[in-house]
Write a protein that binds this DNA or RNA. Structure first.
Lengths: 101, 101
DNA sequence: GGCGTCGTTCGATAGTTGTCGAACAAGGGT
DNA sequence: ACCCTTGTTCGACAACTATCGAACGACGCC
């Protein structure tokens, strides 16, 4: 099964933004930005594995992540270079947790 | 009636992103970035005025715009300075129409 | 081969959101 | 005073989305 990872230029901006506009997914993206390539199971943000799988699918189909099989797990990584090239500043603006100053 | 314009630091990032993650609203934001302060009625993107009003409300409550009365109309403007300070690069990354290269 | 782990998919459900027409409200002009 | 223009608000409705448990599939290991 091809994991359906689209060309970023083919994804409408609104889809990229929508993918980031969810708390769980934003936490996943932040974890990926910090920790690099990680297994799906390493994201435990209080949702079931079905929900987690759903969010990872949304991120993948929005062009934000790539997934590859690794034995019994799947490794996910941020497509940071491509994102930074196509939307410079977007990730930086969004990645840092913002304390309610 | 206070137009309910929140402090930007009090708005969760996901709300800002969600506000931008809609085609109509993104067009409104782009028009505001280009044309500066404009009347609500100047945004005709193929939706009814009820829908337009709804979108402007979403933008306002996400801290993206400010609205002031001006006679019979209402003028809307982008809170660009605040946005650029709090989320540097966000608007720039999103404002330019992207031709499917 | 059989078992446990890891992840995806399915079906259901509840909540959110985009859209509209119609009704309403506020102002300005004549 | 009347009307027209400009926006907002109110249901209503359809579409989408986040969530879950359960069933399924793939892989490694014993």
């Amino acid at each position: 099964m091809e994991p359906h990872e689209p060309d970023l230029t083919a994804v409408p901006v609104t889809s990229v933004l929508a993918a980031l506009a969810d708390d769980v997914r934003l936490q996943i993206v932040r974890a990926l930005a910090e920790g690099g390539e990680s297994a799906c199971g390493s994201f435990d943000f209080g949702v079931s594995k079905a929900t987690r799988s759903h969010h990872l699918k949304v991120l993948r189909e929005a062009g934000l992540t790539r997934t590859r099989a690794a034995g019994t797990s799947r490794l996910v990584r941020l497509r940071r270079d491509e994102l930074d090239k196509l939307y410079p500043g977007l990730l930086d603006a969004v990645l840092t947790e913002r304390p309610p100053a």
